[in-house]
Amino acid sequence: MKINVRQIVVAGVLGAIAIVLGVTQIGFIPVPNLSGSATIMHIPAIIGAVLEGPVVGILAGAIFGIFSMLNDTSGLFTNPVVSVLPRILIGLTSWYVYKALEKRNSDVAAAAAGVVGTLTNTVFVVGALIAFGLLPVEAVPTIIPQALVEVVIAAIVTVLVARGVKLVRSGSTTASESKDGTY
C-alpha cells in the first residue's frame, strides 16, 4: 500500500481533531443514561472517508483508536480489539456507503455515511466488549439512547462539514436564493 503526503497530512489533521474533541471534553455530549455521554470523536474518521476516501478515513480512525487506548479512563478500551479495530472500520464502511449514494445526492450520501460510520463504531465496540466478557449482553439496551444521539449528531455534522469543504473547493461565490427569500 502506498500512502501519499496528502493522505498523511489530512488524516493527521483529522486524527488531531478527534484527540482534541477528547481531551477538551467538547466531544462528549451528556446523555441521560447510565453510561454518561454521547461521543462525536469518531466523526473526523467519517469526514476523512467522505472527503478523501477510505485510506484517510482508516488512518484518522486508527489515530482516534490508538488515542482512546492510550488515554483510556474507563478501563474498557485498553484492549486494541475494542479500541482500535472498530475505529479502523469506520472509515471503510462510511466510505462504501458514501460512494454508493454520492451520485444520487451528496447530502443524503454524507448523512448516510454519518449514520453507518457511527453504527460501525457502536456495534463493533459493543460487540468486542461483549466478546471479551466486559459487557453482559443484557446491558445493551442502556446504550441505545446514547447510540441514537450519536447517529443524529454524526449525520448532521458530516453533511454540514462535507458541504462546507466542498463549497470551498468548488470555487463558487454566491449562494442561490432560499425559498423563503431570507438569506
Binding site: I3, I8, A11, G15, A16, I17, V20, V23, A62
Partner: peptide, 23 residues
C-alpha cells in the same frame, strides 16, 4: 507503510496544541 503511519501520528500530535488554541 510503517513510516507513513508513524508520520501520520506525528502530524496529528503536531496539530493537537494548535487546534486546541483554535477551538
Amino acid at each position: 507503510p510503517v513510516n507513513e503511519l508513524v508520520m501520520t501520528m506525528t502530524v496529528a500530535l503536531k496539530f493537537v496544541p494548535l487546534l486546541i488554541t483554535e477551538l
